[in-house]
Amino acid sequence: MAGSGRIKRLCFTSSASVYGNGRPTDPGAPAQFNEDDAPSPLSVYGNTKLWGEHQVKITMRSAKVSYSVVRYFSVYGEPQTVKKGSHSWVVAWLALRASVGLPLELNGGGHQVRDFVHVDDIAAGTIRALSAPAAHGQVLNIGTGRPTTIRSVAEHVLTHYPDAELVERPMPPGDPMGGYADVDRVRRALKWCPRITVEEGVDRYVKWIKERPEATPGWMRQLAGASSLRAV
């Protein structure tokens, strides 16, 4: 694990998107992604992350520098907000829309599965992947190992905003059904697992936006205002 210069280990942040849809462990069950599964990205983003993984392995091995690769699952948590025209960051989208009175839109009914990992746990896992001896040369899932549907997140948001409405939309092309992380390897290598449940994380995010109304983008407030006028 000798390094050149001052670099002791490089940790490359990759993504669960390299897996694509994966394969369910049982018929009707959500897919579980293992680090040894053959990657099959469905997007340019996922493909570039996979390319980056290969480049890190080739470059670091040649330079005799220790490396690790962490594949993030669905990252959420304060101070995450949303970008106009984007549909990433499910927790932020649902909570912010509910906070301004907009309906919670569920593509395909919200039955897609994600493995939601709070940003605090993402940070903790990444730091360990930089320092744990057993992480050397490893590809590691940073996930909770818990499959969670987007609909169940929306329903938990409704416990904070009971007047919000759920609206089902058609499934857009290319939207993966998703899956969850196999976390056996990361637990062994890092002696660690995420601590924050998705329910606790959503509660924390809602509390954060209630305390910081300026976190809600102006364009979303305008959208809510226009929607109210149309309703009248």
Rank of each mutant, 00 (worst) to 15 (best):
R71L: 06
A215T: 15
N21K: 00
G5F: 01
F116S: 05
V183C: 08
T25M: 13
S131M: 02
G46H: 03
I122R: 00
N47H: 12
P172L: 11
M60I: 09
R23K: 14
P162Y: 00
G218V: 09
V82N: 05
A226D: 15
P170A: 10
R146W: 08
S14P: 04
K64C: 11
N47A: 15
D203Y: 01
G77N: 14
P170E: 13
V198S: 01
V100H: 00
V70M: 03
M171I: 11
P213S: 05
G225A: 06
F33C: 13
I122S: 09
S152H: 05
V69H: 01
Y45C: 05
A181H: 08
I7F: 02
Y205D: 12
P173H: 10
T81A: 04
G109D: 11
T148N: 13
I127C: 12
A31K: 09
G46D: 06
L229Q: 15
P173D: 15
A2W: 03
Q32I: 13
K84P: 02
R212F: 05
S68W: 07
A2N: 13
V82K: 08
I196P: 07
K8M: 04
Q32D: 07
P133F: 06
H54F: 04
S4I: 11
G28F: 00
G101M: 02
L190R: 07
F116D: 05
S152R: 07
G125D: 13
G5C: 02
V44G: 10
T126A: 11
A2Y: 04
A31W: 01
E168C: 04
D184T: 15
G137L: 03
W208C: 04
D120F: 00
P194S: 06
S40C: 13
H160A: 12
D175P: 00
D36R: 07
L42G: 05
V117Q: 00
D37R: 09
Q112F: 00
R23H: 13
S14A: 12
D37S: 10
D37F: 03
E53N: 06
R23V: 15
D120V: 03
G109W: 06
K8V: 10
G20W: 00
T13E: 07
S66N: 14
S62E: 14
V44A: 14
L223N: 01
M220H: 10
H136N: 15
S152C: 08
D121H: 07
N47R: 15
Q32T: 14
